[in-house]
């Protein structure tokens, strides 16, 4: 599968996806770490991709949504932003709402 198709599948199949350096348990970058903490603070499950362990995604994710840096957060297939935007949304309480809606939406879809 083409790498961009693979990324598309990841963001389609998971309501919340974090592309980060390292893992939420073992982050390799301060920006990735803070972003993972914000998502964890929302109390919802989220998928993550360690871009350091997937060189193809590392190389190609920036052109997937025309966003040059890591981390990147996707909700319902849409780029939300990097670390600074995610944290700002978290501080405003908006990230909590967005992630809850995304997680609930998935449950409803599964029931339907």
């Amino acid at each position: 599968m083409d790498v961009l198709e693979r990324i598309q599948k990841q963001v389609d199949e998971n309501p919340i996806v974090l592309y980060m350096k390292g893992t939420p348990q073992m982050p390799s970058c301060g920006f990735s770490s803070r972003t993972a903490q914000a998502l964890q603070g929302c109390g919802v499950e989220f998928a993550y991709v360690n871009v350091l362990a997937d060189p193809e995604v590392f190389e190609n994710l920036p052109r997937f949504a025309d966003w040059p840096t890591f981390p990147q957060v996707y909700i319902n297939g849409e780029l939300i932003g990097g670390c600074d935007i995610t944290l700002e949304l978290f501080q405003k309480g908006e990230l909590q709402k967005m992630t809850k809606e995304a997680a609930t939406g998935k449950e409803n879809a599964e029931q339907g």
Binding site: K21, G22, P27, S28, C29, G30, F31, S32, S33, R34, L52, C83, D84, L87
Partner: peptide, 11 residues
């Protein structure tokens, strides 16, 4: 504006 995070040694 907020402070930047510390480095965690990423590549």
């Amino acid at each position: 504006s907020p402070e930047s995070p510390p480095c965690l040694g990423g590549s």
